[in-house]
Each structure stands twice: as C-alpha cells, then as structure tokens.
Amino acid sequence: MTGRVWLAIGGVAVAGTIGAWLLFVTLPEVYDEVDDATVTVPRDAPAEPPRLTSATLFYVAEDGERLIGVEREVVAGDAPIAQARHVLEAQFLSVEPPLLSAMPEGTLLRALYVTDQGDAFVDVSREIASGHAGGSLDELLTVYTIVNAVTVNIPTVRAVQILIEGREADTLAGHVDLRRPLTLRPEWTDPAPADFGAPTAP
C-alpha cells in the first residue's frame, strides 16, 4: 500500500474521530436537555424535597370554549429555561375532571430552547399531532396551552414556537400556523385564574 493511501486512511480516521467527538460532545448539549426534559417525576424519593413555586397552568374549561388558568405548585428552576421546563412538564401531565387538558395523550416534552430575543422553542413528541382529534378551536386550545404556559410563567419569553420531533412543523391538524413563534393571546383564555382543589406537588 502506498504512503498516499495510508495518508488518506489516516485522514479519514482523524476526520472520523473528530466527527464522532463533535457528534458526541457537541450535540449532547442538546440531547442532555432532551433526557432531562423527559424525566417528569423523580422516581426515587429525593434526598431533599425539591423547592416549589407557584405557576399558572392552562386547561380547557368545562364548557370547552376556552382555556382557564389554574394555579399549581411546580418545581422551581434557577434559570428561565429550567423554570420553563418544569412548567411544561407539569402542564403535560394528565389532569382530573372537571378540568380537561388540550394536550393529546402521550405528548412528551423532548427539548426546550430559549433565545436571547425571548423566543422559546418547545420541541414535543409526535403525539401532539397524531393524537389530535382536529377542529380549529381544539387546535387553538392545544397550541395556546403551550404558548400561554411558557409566556405567562416565564416573563423573559415573548413568543413560543412549537417544534415536533425536533423539526419545524406546519400545523398540528391543519389550522394553526406553527412556522413562526406565537405570542400570548387572550382570546382563547379566561383571564381569571381559577383554583380547582388544593395545590398538589408534582
């Protein structure tokens, strides 16, 4: 084998190593977040109970017409992104009647990014679309459950874009444009937060 071929093989090997390093060192900054984000409830009793804070979560009112804000205790996060994660994790949990959740069953938070400009990107699993029953009102309520939960609880976030399985999405079920960040809208939300039952720790 000539020196040139060895050089080429060596080059590929070096490139491969760099590539692998970049893939496993650079990308995991995001993937770690994904792993973190999917852990919604600590399975073992933690040594210290997590610090809690109050947050407004959004559910569909009994009459199905709009969202209502409900005060709940959620795990407190140090940075806005950590706080947003805890709020969304709590928001994605199933809820007891008479409240209804506009989040299709099985929807998981995959990852979350917050930009300096105050845009949050909420990456959720495909169930948000595949499990959606359709209808523009229902779709608006699903989308604004996420938009409201993040913008109301994280003051530095101005707008929210929903990504599905890590990619930009068109719509959930054919109506609401998801290609741009959406800001808080009062139309589909009852402004008076109501408390249903005693606060429960997640």
Partner: peptide, 19 residues
C-alpha cells in the same frame, strides 16, 4: 369545528391575525 366538550356549537368566521 370540534371541541373536547359536547357543549360548544355554532358557526364562526375568522381572518388572519398578525403577531
């Protein structure tokens, strides 16, 4: 349209909102 509740009814018209 569709809602999670059987209550809502009626027609409605929308036009585009700009953020």
């Amino acid at each position: 349209n569709a809602s999670l509740s059987p209550v809502p009814s009626g027609a409605e018209v929308s036009y585009l909102s700009l953020d």
